[in-house]
Design a binder for these strands. Structure first.
Lengths: 240, 240
DNA sequence: GCAAATTATTTGTCAAGCTAAAATATAGCT
DNA sequence: AGCTATATTTTAGCTTGACAAATAATTTGC
């Protein structure tokens, strides 16, 4: 019985890509390590530099490598981050493959759970950060961009607290998308800034009551969702 | 006041990438359209073919293009799919950036909601597919690979039914990850095959009762989660 | 009319060299 | 000695020009 291998990697560069990728996943190269220079790799793989470059470029766009020019440059293995997930997300949204209502549906399920988990794992340091974030929200608004950032902070901190990196990634992606929509639509700051927006949520989380935290976050998410959905049409029509 | 543009795209190829990407997102090229051949692009952008190729390769790995060789070949714009999300996911898992317990936590939140949504949107055609899937589950097991596929079917159908493409994508990603774990660990088929595994879930969904659907799915997910977590250690130690 | 051979078009790959970036070593000056 | 400018080294980025390979359309031969 033969092995029936090839089929897909008709391209040499893909074969190279997969070998390097496997090598990284198996731990032959760890985060921070530098791959041999292109020319050495070309020699080792017995292919041209172009094929190597294609492979490295591909691995760079999927987040496994960062490539730097210069004397101490080269292809460095990077700790894989959720950035690629994030980007995939943003692209899908920009191509209308995910809609704001769908996103809102997701948020409504995930954010309360995140708040609940955060309530279970709150520490003194976390509490401090949350209180600071609330304090900053009370300061006068300087610019829309800054306002967006400030408003996201609580969600961001809770996501970090929840201890689930997937949830954290999703929340971050959604924050980024939301920012983009808000920044594009440029709404009246006051509709975006009810006083004490996040106070009940934070209080519930700090009390350590997971049910209360989930309840308050759900309320908040529903409210903000209504605001956001109003912006959708404006956003879709904009198209710079 | 100057515009302060460049900063990031130090590379020509990235500049090309971004221009083409923007062009696609703005709808200048629609799914199915073919970009001009590399040589024409090179002329138009006034750069070499290699720079163009680097850009096209990058866009291919992020899922915007598929490139085919030959007379009617070229770089074709593709409808962006959730495949890239899927891949990002798998990579994160393989690099230990997401753990099985975390995944299980996510599943426990998402799958019940998916079932609930499915219950609200069930149609005759859906009902038919679900019943077929249940029937297939009752047939004798032929191979592990096939068993995995059969067991995933119900989840897959529900995900399609739920009408939220993000949820669908997440469920699909998790199915794929689960398959990989199960396939690697090669557990005893009988532990994987309690009779009528999905019957209560499907019944609840078909009854149109969203609360019942969510409840049954949660029960099922918790049960399967226990099985899966038992496999985790075996999976992490395997490392082919 | 059909099959085989040819041609055209396009990406894939190669080779060799030059440019640009970035760190390091060296030289020259005060 | 200490600083600054210059040169060197190492690396990826880019260019050019050529050929290979895949694929479809066209022509040729029968």
């Amino acid at each position: 019985m033969p092995s029936f291998k090839p089929i897909r990697p008709a391209r040499i560069s893909e074969e190279v890509t997969e070998q390097i990728k496997r090598s990284i996943l198996l731990g032959d190269f760890k985060a921070g390590d530098r791959l041999p220079p292109e020319r050495s790799l070309a020699e080792e793989f017995q292919v041209s530099r172009v094929a190597i470059r294609d492979a490295l470029r591909s691995l760079e766009t999927s987040g496994f490598l960062t490539i730097r020019q210069g004397a101490t440059g080269g292809a460095f293995v990077t700790e894989l981050t959720f950035e690629s997930l994030n980007n995939a997300f943003l692209d899908l949204f920009l191509s209308d493959k995910i809609s704001l209502p769908e996103l809102q549906q997701v948020r409504l399920v995930i954010e309360p759970e995140v708040a609940a988990l955060a309530a279970e794992r709150v520490t003194e340091a976390h509490a401090q950060r949350l209180k600071e974030a609330l304090a900053v929200e009370e300061e006068p608004i300087r610019s829309l961009a800054q306002d967006i950032e400030v408003k996201g902070a609580v969600h961001y901190i809770l996501a970090q607290m929840c201890g689930n990196r997937f949830f954290e990634a999703v929340v971050r992606s959604m924050l980024r998308l939301t920012s983009q929509v808000v920044a594009a639509v440029q709404p009246d700051p006051r509709t975006m800034h009810p006083e004490g927006l996040h106070v009940p949520v934070v209080q519930a989380v700090l009390s350590g009551d997971r049910r209360a935290a989930a309840r308050e976050m759900k309320k908040h998410a529903e409210e903000f969702g209504r605001t956001l959905l109003k912006m959708e049409k404006a956003f879709r029509n904009r198209r710079r």
